[in-house]
Write a protein that binds this DNA or RNA. Structure first.
Lengths: 140, 140
DNA sequence: TAGTCATTGTTGTTGCGCATAGCAATCTGG
DNA sequence: CCAGATTGCTATGCGCAACAACAATGACTA
């Protein structure tokens, strides 16, 4: 009854990459939604936490997010009282986590680390050590 | 001068997956744009080519694309004269590649296969055989 | 020091991909 | 024969990202 399609697509690494990324993003997305965070916001939170005083432009460069697109992202984080902005000079502003921001960031890290562990657990052991270096090689 | 950020993110497989997928999608995207095709359209074209007479709903199930979102996609392919629709019963319609559609699909496959080869070439040899199975394991 | 050039934060707009809800027509199985 | 599933479709919204443009400011050099 259920149609059996001839599908050459899963043989293609690029396609498999897209599908895997989508599946993981969706899964992680619902978990982070618990904290009212999107993945992009969680990344930014973590990066700010590890680099207090960063500038928005530097963040964008690191994450490959356009300066323009950082604006609403940071605005949302600021309105949620998770980050503080402090002018560095008349042009730049340094970003830092507020106290609730630190807590939220830690909670996000816990969720993410848990998820990463589950991800690796789903992987046959012989492939496990190859995933991260392989992905890193593709990305740069 | 160029700021050196402390970035824990690339250690995370999930993050690396997202970045790698984005990078690959962007790169493949510009190449397929040569044929005036998006990746989703190329996938659909390939799948229709491998399964003449498929139904739109079946395509959507295979590719995890919502029925609703297949509509504009197929409409675009039809307006480009790449596919033909033939009513199966009063409800379903079978999809098939037109002659220009076959050519376009073949051209897309060439581009994709070339790209996949380059992708694998970018990979250190010891990781190469692990990528596809690892991604497949993550995705399902 | 003055003037050019780059950077920063911002606005506005656009496009793609994906999700959901709803609908009319049609098919299917008990 | 009829209830329930299926199909194609409309409409709408969200998240993410790209591009162009801009004023204010900083940095470098001539």
């Amino acid at each position: 009854m259920t149609e059996q399609l001839n599908d050459p697509l899963p043989m293609l690494p690029g396609y498999a990459l897209r599908r895997a990324a989508n599946a993981c993003a969706a899964e992680l997305g619902v978990r982070l939604a618990t904290l009212d965070l999107r993945q992009s916001e969680a990344s930014v939170l973590i990066l700010i936490g590890a680099n207090p005083g960063v500038t928005a432009a530097a963040l964008g460069r690191q994450l490959d997010i356009q300066r323009a697109n950082m604006v609403p992202l940071l605005k949302r984080l600021e309105e949620a009282e998770l980050i503080d902005r402090a002018p560095i000079d008349g042009k730049s502003q340094g970003l830092a986590l507020s106290e609730p921001g630190i807590d939220r960031m830690a909670a996000a890290r816990t969720i993410i680390d848990t998820y990463e562990a589950e991800l690796l657990a789903r992987l046959p052991a012989e492939h496990r050590p190859h995933l991260l270096p392989a992905l890193a090689a593709l990305w740069r």
